[in-house]
Every structure is written in structure tokens, then in C-alpha cells.
Design a protein around this nucleic acid. Sequence first.
RNA 1: GCGGGUGUGGCGGAAUGGUAGACGCCGGGGACUUAAAAUCCCCUGAGCUUUGCUCGUGUGGGUUCGAGUCCCACCACCCGCACCA
Length: 839
Amino acid sequence: MSDTRFDPAQADARWQAAWDKAQTFRADSNSAKPKSYVLEMFPYPSGRIHIGHVRNYTMGDVLARYKKATGHEVLHPMGWDAFGMPAENAAMEKGVHPGGWTRDNIEHMKAQLKRLGFALDWSRELATCEPDYYGHEQALFIDLYEAGLVYRKESEVNWDPVDMTVLANEQVIDGKGWRSGAEVEKRKLNQWFLKITDFAEELLEGLGSLENWPDKVRLMQENWIGKSKGLEFSFDLSNGEKLPVYTTRPDTIFGASFVAVAADHPVAQGVAMNNCDAAKFIETCKKGGTTAAELETAEKLGFDTGIGAVHPFTGEHLPVYIANFVLMNYGTGAIMAVPGHDQRDFEFATKYGLPIPRVVAPSVEDADKPFDGEAEAGEGVIVNSDFLDGMEVEDAKREIIRRIEQQGRGQGKTVWRLRDWGVSRQRYWGTPIPFIHCESCGVVPASKDSLPITLPEDVDFKTPGNPLLRHPTWKHVDCPKCGGKAERETDTLDTFVDSSWYFLRFASQPADKPFDKDEIAKWLPVEQYIGGIEHAILHLLYARFWTRALAHMGQIEVTEPFASLFTQGMVTHETYSRKEGGKTVYYAPDEISREANRALLSADGGEVEIGRVIKMSKSKKNVVDPDTIIDTYGADAVRWFMLSDSPPERDLPWSEAGIEGCSRFVHRLWRLFTAYDAGAQGEDKALARKTHQTIAAVAEDIEALGFNKAVARIYELTGAVEKAAPSASRSHAIRTLVQLVAPMMPHLAEEAWATLGETGMVADAAWPEVDPALLVEDEVTIAVQHKGKLRDTLTAPKGASKEDLEAMALASENVQRSIDGAEIRKVIVVPDRLVNIVT
RNA sequence: GCGGGUGUGGCGGAAUGGUAGACGCCGGGGACUUAAAAUCCCCUGAGCUUUGCUCGUGUGGGUUCGAGUCCCACCACCCGCACCA
């Protein structure tokens, strides 16, 4: 026993070294135990770990350590999403090499992670920027090509003029580059695409099986994939051409009063050739903003082309407009407009004085009911529609599709919002696309023997654009097919490709191929994947796509990589700012001294404004540095804070007072642990019960990732042990407490475990056993209510009869006073819970 | 606009339809100390005529012996998507 203070700095280092030495967290693929693959989204090596990483990885770590304690062979790896633009930006700004910069960052961040004592299998560490990773990615890319899932086409791309690169649709936010914030331009380039649309149906269907994913994420993916069923058919135009349109409401075809095409539709372009006004109008449309606010307020505008479209059933000539609200890249870029039953069409028709016929009504009698200032998009019966009259919407849809197909004019069609994934990036710091351009053979894949195609080291970043393109020798190679002179592809892959299969490489790392099928079958799927909600669509959809694509090619068997997904909340902090010369200047927490209701700037003692509690960000300076807080409080206090109070899916407000409270608790536990008396005798039934109830509750909470609740249980047990007199039960409670906190505060737990005289490490110890007999109380507190209001509580033996409870309740002085002689009409007794007397 | 989520003390948050506010933080009082730090103990939703009573989980209704929890309507905030035919 020792009454010296717990020294986190010393204990942290000692046990981190001990785990390393014993390879405690190494995953054994040949283990006979049930497996558990716990994975957190790997970080981009930006230079320093931020507090969000700490929260993310602490959650995963608790689960991994708990799984190990409960007899699982745990795979809990860590690696680096190491390609990407910040490295090139650093190269441009500081003149360092992206590779050197990235590897330095990795080294630093790895040391930071090690300081937190995470139970990671570092032997499986990988970095996507190393040839032994991206070389395999090149091989997989060629496999995908051979499976017909990779193609090249000239397409209009989103060109970021600042980063000089192409962006995916989803990387364009409000018309601006997601990283640079620059206004995105349209350019035509030859691009590599992955055929994710081939898997649209599967990816949508698969969501149904992902029961342990947040509904929110599933819904976001569903909307992103955007399946819609409808009819594509062609109008005959008065100029002799045919105009295909797409509609999800073929049932409303008799309500069509005009036809509209997108500004960049061929029909519109054709009209513009000999009509200046049309050309001008198209220009106006293109200038129209794409931001959310602008779209919301944008007026519906149109230009009458003078062309007529013949209605397939009535023969009527409908005017063809060019309209700013029709999109070229959805459906056919042309619509039949039904103002009565589509709000956009309604607004347009109102503006241009076009007819608004009603073809759907609540009932047949309402066929001529006027519209109340807006379109009616809902259900009903079809009216004013010839042979459709009286039909339900769904029946009418089928009927129209049948007739249109019979006429040979079109067919029922499913349209997807999801587009193919453009993966070409005109950057240096990415995986080189393993293809070669040959004048006689065309575009051919590199031979697999030539992999990895590595990036050249001698590059400069003094000029913007792609250094691979201007490198003097790198791109010149012989054609793998004909042997003639040829050139390498100089585009590199989108970094989302790198993160689309890293979870497979963690599970299996042969040198000669991307992974081993049997090893993947052993470890996948990931039992628990944890990361930020910001990856709800892109990363998670791409990873699901790659997994399915690889399964299709027979390379693996698993189709969904992440069985269970958890999206954790952000770490937030209040902001400190004040106006200085008209500008708002933000100050970091360590520049501030915080008092009860105000905050003062340490430098000059001036008061600063305390702002909202928001996500930590560099621009608002409301960040805390993990290294600093580990220095001050030790890894365990920091980990404990990450788990306390806030439910893990919600935001966690960082506070100085909060971390200090955690630190106090670390020391409080230590005092308790060092007061352990192995030889204490005697039973303390109440404490024993509390101990066993806590073991069960903490286990349940950890499995449900309810860390804040587990923390509260541990506080309760701690309080109970502190109050208890020495006994065998108390000694058992203390030993149990060490084990319960071990996943959360592993360093303190190891230190205590040794102090208690246990052999081996607590990290290797089995989770404490629960005695089911001790989970139930033998006395319970019964609430006594009069007309639903609490009047008294009483203690009764567990399982007491209804009659006894009723008698005890009626004997209560408080209850009698409340009843005050009134007639008792009913008595409700819930055994072991309450008695409610109704008068 | 559409879709989803969340509203509980000063704060973070607990509560299978059954004692609202567990647990933590903040705050107040006390003990120990020459003093401080550390530690420990007590109090801490609001109000009242304080053995006890009334009110109280965003607002208004409803179901029920009993509602934070279920149902209906509304309000506020947050997130996602966005003229997707």
C-alpha cells in the first residue's frame, strides 16, 4: 500500500511501454476466439491530433478494450489517410516536399496518439501515400477496369481555379470548391469514372440490412441515391423533331399545359442560333446563382420558343418554353409541365398566364374545384382526363405507361440522382492512375508487373498545376501492349478512393496482393465503425460501393463493410472575442482567465465577450490542444472527460472546470484503490449488490456505446465504496472498480491492478463476473400515490403481495390525511413499484 | 420548400407509461490548516402559510388511476437535401 499521489506522467509512460513490449493489443488472425473488428475513421495527417480525434478514438478504445476483456479477439488498427491537397499546399507555401511533410506529421501524430494509451495494433499501421498501399490500389483499379467498372469520358467538370483541380459534384458546395472556397468553373476534360451507378439499386437495397446504422445516415444515402420511377416519352414537335421528357406523374398527362427545356438543352441551343433574344435569355439563366438562398428566392423565368409540342392523347399543341428551373443533368433535361399538380409549374404558369387545369381531385365531384393559390401534389382521383377519369393515381400511372409503351412513344423508366464517380484529379500527391496513353493502342492499363507506379520525388511546386504533367521524364514509358513510345496518365486518384478499401488492408496485408480473401472473411465486416457525421454520404457510400464491387469480382465475400455505424458529436467550446478597431478579434482559451460570469484577457486585463458554444475551429480560436491537456492532467483524465456527461452522439462542450473535475476523480479513485485491504473479512450485502449491479449496468452501457451512463454508474459505485467499512465485499468492490474503469482509464487501472497485488495486466484480465442472485434487491421502495400524486414512500420486502402493499399504503399517516375520509373507489397496485389510491 | 432530429434546474444530462432532476460541473455553507492548496461533510428546480403543500420536463389540447415518456396541433432551434420533374 502506498499513500503517494498518483503520477499520471509516470504511469502513462510506464504502461504504454509495457503494452508495447508485451504486444498486448496485437490481433491474431489464427485465434479461436470470436472476433471483433473495432474501427475509427483514420485521420488525415494534418500535423496535430485535434480534440475531435481524441473523442472519436477514446470511444473506439473503450469498446476495443471491453471486447478484449469479454473474450474477443479484437482488431483495432490505426493508419493515415495520407494523400491530399494540404500536403501540396504546404509544399507551395513552405517549399517542403509533400512526402516529407506528410511523414513528419504522421510521426508527430502517432506520438500524440501513443500518449493517450490507445489499445491499437500498431503492427498493422498503414499510410495511403506509401507505395506498399497505393500500389495495391492501382492493381484493384485495373481489376475494376477489367470488370467494366472504370471508364473514361470527356465531360464537363467542376474546375477549381485556385487549387487547379477537378472536383466531384459533392465537393462543390454552393457553387464553390469545398476546400478553397473559390467559385467553380465549368470545363471539358477527359476524366476517369467509376461506375457507381451500376450499383445504385444494390446500394439502396443494402441500406435496408444496415439496422445498426443511424436512420439519419441511411436516409441521407437514400436521398443521395435518389431513385424515382416514372415515364420517359417523346413529344412530336412542330419543327419535326422529337423531344423526350421524363415525368414521375404520368397520371397527370392530361393536365399538361406547356413543355419546358433546360437552358443548355439542344432544343434551346438550336433556337438560340437564329434568335438573339433566346440566346440572351440562356445567358441570363447561366448567370443565375446556385447558392441555397438564391435558388429559394429565384423567380421562375421562361422564354417561349414558338415551337409547339403535340400532346400524345389530345393532339393539342403545347407551347415549348426554355425555363430556368429545368435542369439538364436530371432526367432528359425536358419536362411536361402540369401546373395544377407541381408547384414550380404552377408558379411558372401563373407568371406567363398559361392554363392551370385540374386533373386530380379529392373526389369526382370536385372536378372543377379551383386551386387555392398553389399546386396540389397529393393523392386523389383523376378527373378531366378522358379515359383516366375516376382512377386512383397509381392505377392511372400504370395505364398511361402501358398506353405510351403500346404507341412505341416511350417506356416506364427509373431515374437516379446518383451519378458516376469522377475520380481524376490533376494533382501530384495522390495515387497515380495506372494507365498508359499509346498513339497506336489507345488507352491501356499498365501491366501488373510494373506496379507500383510510384510518384517521382524530384518535383517542384513553384508553379500551380500538376507537377506530374511537367516532369521531364516521369510520364515517358513504353506501351505495355506494342512496346512503342507512350505516355503515362498524369492524373491521380481522388483520395476518397484511398479510404474506400483501407479497412480491408487493415485486416490482411500480404506483400504481393491487396489482401487475402480468407483473412478478409475472418475479420470483416467491421463490428463497430465510429466517425463523424460529415462522412455520412461520400466516404461511406464509396466504401460500400468498393466493397460490393470487389465482392462482384469474387475478390471478397462480404458486401457491406460496416455492420454497425456510430456517428459521434463534435467537441465544442465557448468563444472569446472583442471588437478591436471595428474588427472582431478572437482569443484562445489559454489567453483568457475565466471568472464566474465574465472572461478577462490575461494580457491586458480587459473584458472579452463570451460567445456561443460552437465547434472548435482555428478561425474562432476556441481550440484546446490535446498535448497541453495531457501534460497537465494525464491521459486518463482526458479520456474520462471525453466519455463523461454528454451522450456520445451529441456535442461535448469542453470546459476547464470539467477536465479538472475528471482529474480530481482520477486521484480520488487512486486514494480508494490504495486503501485496499486484501485480508478484510465479512460480508456487506448492500455493497455486494451494488457492485454486481454496476458490473452488469456498465457492460450494458458500453455495448450500447452509452459511455456517459457507464461513467455515472462508476461514480455511484465509487461513492458507495467510499462510505463502506472494510469487508471482503468492499475489497471485491475495489478490485471490480479497477476493472470497470480499465477500458476508460487504462493507465490508472494498470497501476492500481499492480498495487492490489494482482498478477499480469488488467488489460489482459477477464471482465468481472456477475452473480445474477445479487442483481435483485430484497427490499424495495414503494411509491404511494393518492390520485396520482406522490404522498409517501415506504419500504417493503421484494415481491410483497398486492394486499400487503395496499394495507401498508393505507396505514400511512400522510396518505390518510390526503384522503381525508373520502370514499376509496379504486386502488392500483404495481408490485415492487407503487400503490395509487383513487378516491 | 422538402426530409430528419432536439427541446428536462445556473450548465452537461438521467429516467421499461409508475417517486422527475440519477451522475457530473458550477454555486453556497462548514471541517481540517497559522494560512493556502489538496481533501472531507452538508445544502443546492421554483414558490409557499414549511410535520407539509402548490407549481414544474418548449406551448396548447387529448388518452390514462397515473404522461418527460403515448396521440393531435403548434412554437423554437439544429442538421441534411435543394427548382430532381
